[in-house]
């Protein structure tokens, strides 16, 4: 662990208003940084565009989940009612998509929700139990009244002095260095 003590994690910039961090996010985007994120007490409209984020691919997980759910429901009822144990209920056909629909529909919703949730977990590499940000006392204010932007040292454009200058001079932020621990 000691070997990590001096290894930089990144630079944390602190802002006082949503407008400031919005401006800074656009500058980071335009400067070509890729390994960075913003932490704000509430969602900020337009931040995705300001950060230059692409559309989230979570929808594909949702779609695949829903698709699987629908056909699982249909197949399950067909298998149980028509194939494995044919049983006439209320004079209805052994299988018709009609009465299988409510169950398939619920399965669609259930697996869509699972797809969305677990797809989001997967894409965000969650659950993650530790992040060097947690060690920073000031960072706790990101759930209250401060706005933070962190550029990580793994970013190809990251240079300790150049990035620090960029954040303090161009973005007018108070900057602290974070270390891996």
């Amino acid at each position: 662990m000691n070997s990590n003590r001096s290894k930089p994690h990144g630079l944390l910039a602190e802002f006082h208003t949503a407008a400031d961090i919005f401006e800074a996010a656009m500058r980071c985007r335009d400067a070509g940084f890729t390994q960075w994120d913003v932490y704000t007490p509430f969602p900020i409209h337009g931040m995705d565009e300001a950060m230059g984020l692409r559309k989230s691919p979570v929808g594909w997980f949702t779609f695949c989940g829903g698709f699987t759910g629908f056909f699982t429901g249909m197949t399950m009822i067909w298998y149980m009612n028509k194939f494995d144990y044919p049983l006439v209920v209320g004079g209805k056909p052994l299988f018709t998509p009609l009465y299988a629909f409510p169950v398939s529909y619920e399965m669609t919703i259930l697996l869509s929700a699972f797809g969305t949730l677990f797809g989001m977990f997967f894409l965000n590499q969650l659950p993650k139990f530790y992040n060097p940000l947690f060690k920073n006392e000031r960072f706790k204010k990101s759930t209250d009244d401060r706005f933070f932007l962190c550029i990580e040292a793994t970013d190809p454009k990251f240079g300790m002095d150049a990035t620090r200058t960029f954040l303090t001079e161009k973005c007018h932020a108070a900057v602290v260095e974070l270390v891996e621990d």
Binding site: E23, M26, R27, R29, D30, H45, G46, E49, A50, G52
Partner: peptide, 13 residues
């Protein structure tokens, strides 16, 4: 409305 300037637009500021 939250139209965000495209890349490059912020440099002018």
């Amino acid at each position: 409305h939250h139209e965000v300037p495209a890349p490059g637009a912020s440099a002018a500021h």
